[in-house]
């Protein structure tokens, strides 16, 4: 081989490597500016996707991951948060069935700084659930966010209830929904859900689980009604659950599930807890 060619190739490769290094430095320097460049609108992306919706959504999602992964510190700034959510929103605008953007959005919830950011992610998850009708996960995530972060128990109950009705979903979702309704002071909604689930369930094990939950919430509903009667009669809430029997509102306390105990929490709401935990908290004292 002619040596002149070898030298030429080596020189060309060296120039290429140097250019790449220089460009990389330039890219690093302008990284922050690049991240502030507005993203193309969803409608524009829908126009240019042609027949490659899937592929385009894959690439935008990679960009979302890159934005999150390339942050300078462990902290997720508001800018990074908004950028990643916006990229996810664009990804699902092109391919609403794509699971990963929803999954990444849910992971982002832990970095959110306020209810508005959580609501934005929940909106994404609920839109996703409209398309992924077979998938109970997205409704579960949205319900969890309402319960854990926003303390909106009724909304959480509604979402868990929708998730529970998706065939093949986790059985415990119905119980969870009933629990949320109870916390949101709407135990009756939980009872209706459990009854409707029982009507459609044939599996013996699942029926057993649902019947136990139904029994529990029906008892709690009974106790809640008794508390209301007590309040109407004495104009003050009962101090402890046993007061309902002492005052003659109910003949005796219903039998709780094994190892558990009904009690009145600080706000005077009927709840159930394991006996040991209740004792530790000194709730009944």
């Amino acid at each position: 081989m002619n040596w002149r060619w070898v030298i030429l190739i080596v020189i060309l490769l060296a120039i290429q490597a140097t250019s790449l290094t220089k460009l990389r430095i330039y890219y690093k320097q302008t990284e922050d500016i690049q991240r502030t460049i507005p993203l193309p609108p969803e409608n524009f992306l829908k126009l240019i996707r042609l027949e490659f919706s899937g592929l385009l959504s894959d690439f935008i999602f990679i960009q979302a991951q890159e934005t999150l992964g390339n942050r300078k510190t462990g902290e997720v700034t508001t800018e990074t948060f908004n950028r990643v959510v916006s990229l996810n929103e664009r990804t699902v605008a092109i391919d609403p069935y794509f699971l990963d953007p929803y999954y990444l959005a849910q992971a982002l919830v832990w970095y959110s700084r306020g209810p508005e950011e959580i609501r934005r992610i929940n909106q994404l998850l609920i839109t996703g659930a409209e398309y992924r009708t077979w998938d109970s996960d997205l409704l579960f995530y949205a319900g969890f966010n309402h319960y854990f972060f926003l303390k909106e128990y009724r909304q959480a109950g509604d979402l868990f209830s929708q998730a529970a009705q998706i065939p093949g979903g986790w059985t415990g979702l119905a119980g969870l929904a009933a629990k949320m309704y109870h916390r949101g002071r709407d135990t009756a909604a939980g009872i209706i859900l459990l009854k409707s689930m029982l009507l459609r369930t044939t599996d013996k094990e699942i029926r057993k689980y649902l019947e136990a939950r139904l029994d529990q919430y029906q008892t709690m509903y009974y106790l809640e009604s008794a508390v209301k009667v007590y309040q109407e009669k004495f104009l003050i809430p009962p101090r402890q659950i046993e007061d309902l029997v002492t005052a003659g509102i109910i003949p005796s306390l219903p039998v709780p599930p094994k190892g558990q105990k009904f009690y009145l929490d600080i706000q005077g709401n009927v709840d159930i807890e394991r006996e040991a935990a209740a004792k530790n908290k000194g709730i009944n004292k």
């Binding site: 027949e51 899937g54 592929l55 894959d58 794509f98 699971l99 990444l104």
Partner: peptide, 19 residues
């Protein structure tokens, strides 16, 4: 590069290549 929907991504790329 993806977390969960790996099947979708592979089918996307496969069929997009065809097109």
């Amino acid at each position: 590069f993806f977390m969960r929907d790996l099947g979708k991504v592979s089918v996307d790329l496969g069929l997009s290549t065809v097109s």
